[in-house]
């Protein structure tokens, strides 16, 4: 079985995000970029599936600018066998990403497509679900445990009510949650080896995919600064405070 993992280049989770003064987006100039942490978990899970003898090949995919190849190299250094770079300069919307992954899934015929449950840049959290619909295959989202059993996968999902375990037929889409695993540290010799692994570059046109311009970002603004809290001694004081502020 082949596994396909999609990884996205995002602003590193440690960076304090700054909004551009004109509200057209966030500052990425000179900012540290990394692989979306949820995708890193997807990548790690794929490696574990392969190491357990349940998959033969891992293909890492990214959709983005030229520099997104850095994240593919990270995926290759973690242990992916080869990579596909769909080069696109514009921001990618979930539907476009899902169409691209569908086209690649048709081509590569993976037994499972793994991806983060969301990317930490725009927090859309839709690509996996859309891919499952387009590909017409089962989906297991927010996975915190994945067990393979022949042509089926048993997946524990993190849902509002707690944990839910479902069984899906393969091929399937799995989106990964934070507690699924702890991604490994990349080994130095593997960084060197990754350089020699192949990255195929392709484009939306090559894949016959049309970008979906359904969403338009009209403005980006930082969240309002939080006001300091206040401790109250009693319920009466609480009520009068709320009244003073015109909240009740």
């Amino acid at each position: 079985m082949k596994l396909m993992v999609s990884v996205k280049r995002v602003v590193d989770y440690n960076v304090r995000i700054q909004v551009k003064p004109d509200g057209s987006g966030v500052v990425t100039d000179g900012v540290k970029m990394s692989m979306n942490p949820f995708d890193e978990i997807a990548m790690e899970e794929a490696l574990r599936i392969k190491e357990a003898g349940n998959a033969e090949e891992i293909i890492a995919v990214t959709i983005g600018e030229q520099k997104a190849q850095e994240q593919l190299r990270t995926a290759l250094a973690m242990g992916a066998d080869r990579a596909i770079h769909v080069e696109v300069d514009e921001d990618i919307q979930p539907l476009t990403a899902a169409r691209v992954l569908k086209a690649l899934a048709d081509k590569e015929q993976p037994g499972m497509v793994l991806l983060g449950k969301q990317a930490i840049d725009d927090d859309q959290g839709q690509t996996g679900q859309m891919l499952a619909a387009l590909w017409d295959r089962p989906q297991a989202t927010f996975a915190s445990k994945v067990d393979l059993d022949g042509q089926k996968a048993k997946v524990t999902r993190e849902v509002d009510a707690g944990l839910e375990t479902i069984e899906v037929d393969l091929p399937a889409v799995v989106t990964t949650d934070l507690r699924l695993n702890e991604p490994r540290y990349v080994k130095l010799p593997d960084i060197m080896k990754a350089k020699k692994k192949p990255i195929d570059t392709t484009s939306l046109a090559d894949l016959g995919v049309e970008a979906a311009p359904g969403l338009k970002v009209t403005n980006t603004a930082p969240p309002p600064e939080r006001q300091g809290g206040k401790k109250v001694e009693s319920v009466d004081e609480l009520v009068s405070e709320l009244k003073n502020r015109g909240l009740i």
Binding site: E70, R73, T74, A77, Y185, L188, I191, M192, A194, K195
Partner: peptide, 22 residues
Amino acid sequence: SEASPDIIDAILEEGGKLCEQV
């Protein structure tokens, strides 16, 4: 010859991560 700019960057990033997190 092995230390192309992208390799150096990858080494610094992964090495830096080890220093920060471990």
